[in-house]
Amino acid sequence: MDIDLTDDQRMLQDTTRRFLEDRSPVTALRKIADNKLGLDRAIWRECAEQGWVALFVPEAFGGFSESAQGVLDAAIIAEETGRVVFSGPLLPTCVAAFAIAQAGSDAQREALLPGLAAGETVAAWCLSGPGVRAGIEPGGVIATRDGDGFVLNGTAGFVQDAADADLLLVTAVDGANNNGAGVSQFVIPAGTAGITLAPRNALDLGRRLADVRFDGVRLGADALLGTAGEAAAMVERQLQLALVLQSAETVGVTDRALEFTLDYMKQRMAFGRPIGSFQALKHRVADHATQLEGAKAAVAHAARAVHEGAADAAIAVSVAKSQSGRWGTEIIRDCLQLHGGIGMTWEHDIHFYLRRAVSNEALWGAPPVHHERLCRLAGL
Rank of each mutant, 00 (worst) to 15 (best):
D2G: 06
F19N: 04
E46V: 04
Q50V: 02
V53C: 09
A54M: 09
F56A: 06
F61K: 01
G62F: 09
G62Y: 10
F64V: 04
E66Q: 15
L72G: 00
A75K: 02
I77F: 02
A78I: 06
V84L: 07
S87P: 10
L90I: 15
A96V: 09
I100N: 00
R109N: 09
E110K: 14
A111K: 14
A118K: 15
G119N: 10
V122F: 09
V122S: 07
W125D: 03
L127R: 08
V132M: 12
G135A: 09
G135S: 09
I136V: 14
A143L: 09
T144N: 15
R145S: 08
F150S: 01
T155P: 01
G157I: 07
Q160A: 11
D161V: 00
D164Y: 05
V173A: 06
D174S: 08
G175Q: 04
N178H: 15
G182K: 08
Q185Y: 01
I188W: 04
T192L: 07
T196N: 13
P199W: 14
L209K: 00
F214Q: 00
R218F: 08
R218E: 13
L224H: 02
Q240T: 05
V244H: 04
Q246N: 12
S247R: 01
K266F: 10
L281E: 08
D287W: 12
A289W: 03
A289G: 00
T290E: 12
Q291E: 12
E293K: 13
G294P: 02
A295P: 06
K296A: 07
A298T: 06
G309N: 11
A310L: 10
A311V: 12
A316I: 07
A316R: 03
W327N: 01
I331R: 00
Q337N: 13
V369L: 11
V369W: 06
H371I: 11
E372N: 09
R373H: 15
